[in-house]
Design a protein around this nucleic acid. Sequence first.
DNA 1: ATGTTATTGCAACTGAGTTGCAACAACAGA
DNA 2: TCTGTTGTTGCAACTCAGTTGCAATAACAT
Lengths: 164, 164
Amino acid sequence: MPLVKQIRRRGGLERLAKQHGLRLTRQRRLIFAILESAKTHLNAKQILEQAQRLEPGIDQVTIYRNLGVLKRLGVVDELDLLHLRGDQHYYEARQVRAHSHVACLACGKVFEFYTSAIKTIDRELEKECGFSVSFTRIEIGGQCAACRKSGREAPLPRKGKQAR
Amino acid sequence: MPLVKQIRRRGGLERLAKQHGLRLTRQRRLIFAILESAKTHLNAKQILEQAQRLEPGIDQVTIYRNLGVLKRLGVVDELDLLHLRGDQHYYEARQVRAHSHVACLACGKVFEFYTSAIKTIDRELEKECGFSVSFTRIEIGGQCAACRKSGREAPLPRKGKQAR
DNA sequence: ATGTTATTGCAACTGAGTTGCAACAACAGA
DNA sequence: TCTGTTGTTGCAACTCAGTTGCAATAACAT
Ligand SMILES: [Mn+2]
Ligand SMILES: [Mn+2]
Ligand SMILES: [Zn+2]
Ligand SMILES: [Zn+2]
């Protein structure tokens, strides 16, 4: 599941945590660093494994609890990526500009798509409904250009334990 | 979690199933009927419970398998609704017009939002990336007009077993 | 230095969704 | 209408992402 990601300026999470009165533990710093340097969307297990390289004792529950905090603060977004690979969720530090996640159902590739239409939706929602948008998650499924040319047709299992 | 839904023309799923060579079992017809008449987004458990009223022997595995088929055929969409209520997913028969799902993090209300910006995104993606869109899932979190006025501030637990 | 309290690790748990398999029933063809 | 084929079902056991309770630990304010 290769993809390109813009990297959030490092140190941002740490600064933000301080602002909210969070204690800067070794584990927390580590998780921040992993999220800020991630070049791909990571699920909790991947974050855990990466963290354990530097901090062997760290537990998955610490990962989940910190992801929970970061989600609530609105600095990390939780993604489903259409559950193409199973039931896990994926995480990414929120970027300056909102973007959509686009997944090819044929080859599994995921990429990010930037468009001003996201802002348009948010604006409409605020004006027409008086709704104050905190975050917008857009996930699109379909067939990528490469798979279209090669005629690959989405035989990819949409879910299941085997596809791990 | 009240909301208004457009009702899909009934019988559509049955016709479509026939076209794809699916056998019309009693259980399947029942699931189709439930999906086509749903006035709210249903999770698998709710579909099961509703089905068991008319078909007490029906098992959850039958629900899941049929939802799987319908997803693959592209006639039913799977939604997360931001996992505001836990880890389940929700299902709805695909409507003629695509729409976004908007959830208030303060009161839990979910509503549907129709905008031409969805088509815009799909069109851009096709033109700029050569990507052929099969479905677009847009889920937006924030604060609804009522909660804004009353000052309710999203103390709603974003997840967890207790919130069931 | 010390006390307060947020945070961690452990272990047991929860529950949505899946799997294997034998029994069943749609439905096409005779 | 009977019959064979095979898609579909129910059951039971399972998987695994994520959660909970609790005691031990460690930030960090004073
Ligand atoms: Mn999900
Ligand atoms: Mn809907
Ligand atoms: Zn592809
Ligand atoms: Zn509200």
